[in-house]
Design a protein around this nucleic acid. Structure first.
Lengths: 136, 136
DNA sequence: TCGTTTTGTAACCATTAAAGTTACAGGTGG
DNA sequence: CCACCTGTAACTTTAATGGTTACAAAACGA
């Protein structure tokens, strides 16, 4: 199961997107997410590195960097997921076995296709889509 | 990152598919996967429950239950993945916040779409496709 | 029939990642 | 100058994973 960083990241950006004129502090967002402010700052840091929001040390609050229509869920997913691969393969299968020798390469291809399909779907959805659904 | 059970499960079934006339023991398969026989038996148990292979206590080895053309990677994935959901959402966001109140429901829908896309791709690929790739 | 082998499981350990928490340095602005 | 905030390091707790040991029950062959 994929960790909740992605979930929290979308939450953070949804807050910023719905209040684009306000700088929201980590404490404020932590209250909405129901977690610790440090958790928010940690994830905000990743979103900042990805260019999705802006903060300044000492200055309270974060601002969204792009229009919600221009931020896809894939952008957010990649910002908080340091692991490139969705599926793990078991390590060092037996090279003396024809299956063991080739299984990793084969699985990598199969798994990559599945991951691509998932990411393509995430790319179709924008932050604007998410925030629109929040208020229906 | 999704655990290696899926990867090992495909490995096991690939072995059985390429030697459909032989009962392969957990020790034999463990040597190919490069792990402990108990790990193999654990995963074999899940595959057995899903109707993908047959074993009998005391009788050495496992046999594949269906034709490799009729086993999709999704069948295998579901057999070894007890978690239904691919993505986690953070628990108990603040119900007093409009975003917090609705984010879970919204994310569930978005995430489900991504998961469906991934699973659809896994369903397109059969065990026969995998074993064919092993020997190219 | 007896002994060896195998499956199926339970139990335990080590490793790892995640999330929460405490603490604090450094910047900002009132 | 002071209160507050961000950024980050460090620590704890918890849970999942994979490996391992152990053993009961079943099967099979000598």
């Amino acid at each position: 199961m994929i960790n909740t960083r992605f979930s929290v990241a979308v939450h953070i950006l949804s807050l910023l997107a719905t209040k684009p004129d306000q700088r929201l502090s980590s404490s404020y967002m932590a209250a909405s997410v129901n977690t610790n402010p440090v958790v928010i700052r940690r994830i905000s840091g990743m979103l900042k590195q990805a260019g999705l929001l802006q903060t300044k040390p000492g200055v309270s609050g974060a601002l969204i960097s792009r229009s919600p229509e221009d931020i896809t869920l894939l952008d957010i997913y990649r910002a908080v997921q340091q692991e490139d691969l969705l599926f793990s393969t078991h390590s060092s299968p037996n090279p003396d076995c024809p299956v063991g020798r080739n299984i990793q390469n084969t699985l990598d291809q199969s798994f990559k296709r599945a991951q691509n399909a998932m990411e393509a779907e995430l790319q179709k959805q924008t932050l604007a889509d998410v925030t629109a659904h929040l208020f229906v």
